[in-house]
Nucleic acid binder design. Structure first.
Lengths: 136, 136
DNA sequence: GTGTTTGCAAAGTGTTTGCAATTTA
DNA sequence: TAAATTGCAAACACTTTGCAAACAC
């Protein structure tokens, strides 16, 4: 298998040109499972690994990946977006002390009896965020 | 009962001076139940009702009310904070098409089998957001 | 009168965008 | 070489802050 071919295929499938920046970010995101990044943290990691990419491109790329369904955007704090590489149905812990977001195994939380949505609307998705903090 | 005495008492109880601006905003917020406002929408409403208050004061007041436990901050969209006058345990619908946030009656959603929080942390609160959109 | 609060404008934070230069196919 | 993408800096939307004037007690 040629190097990077997985990233190339993934990008081609969603109609994005496999540029150097997009492939590098795809590898950072998808070589390990269940990552939770912000544009800033992903950009910092890229810099650490000597990948040349601007912060604007990181923002644009994350938005394109989200639109393509490769990552999911998670909003838990005002003024900051997290992107989750796990796009399956699942929920989150959010540590309000250090801002760390982590997955809750699907089996560990169960929402029973979903409410009837307001007239004229349908349910897109149910997000459960369990806010945690340091034990007192 | 003297006018405004409820607002005065409420503010005194949480250690905030009952200024003209804080009393006016308290009345807008608490004279009707279960309001969901942003700083901008509350400021707009104040202007409509001829209440003189700056946007900065609306922001500061909402933050003070939140710190005092009079309102709850709800984050569902990047770059915008909603404040909910219902501080009891409950959940939300969020209409992604028009940005309208509404309460889910407590009895209409049940989260069973809460997950074990990460080591060294305790659960502060569980937020369920049901994202809805116009029926296709 | 003394300390608190307000309003304004400026600053701050995270994010998006216009456009020339570069890269991809 | 034609179209897409990048990077920079400027623009943006929302929110916070510094400070002098106004207000509460």
């Amino acid at each position: 298998m040629r190097p990077f071919s997985k990233s190339i295929d993934m990008l081609r499938e969603v109609g994005l040109r496999p540029t150097r920046q997009r492939m590098a970010l795809a590898r950072l995101l998808f070589d390990h499972e269940d990552r939770h990044v912000t544009a800033e943290t992903l950009h910092a990691q890229a810099r650490n690994e000597e990948i040349k990419v601007s912060l604007a491109t990181v923002y644009n790329t994350l938005n394109q990946f989200r639109d393509a369904g490769l990552v999911r955007e998670v909003v838990v704090e005002p003024g900051r977006s997290y992107f989750d590489t796990n796009v399956d149905n699942h929920h989150h812990f959010f540590n309000v002390d250090d801002g760390v977001l982590s997955d809750i195994p699907v089996t560990d939380v169960t929402v029973t009896s979903l409410p009837t949505p307001p007239a004229g609307t349908v349910i897109d998705r149910v997000d459960v965020v369990v806010r945690v903090s340091k034990r007192a």
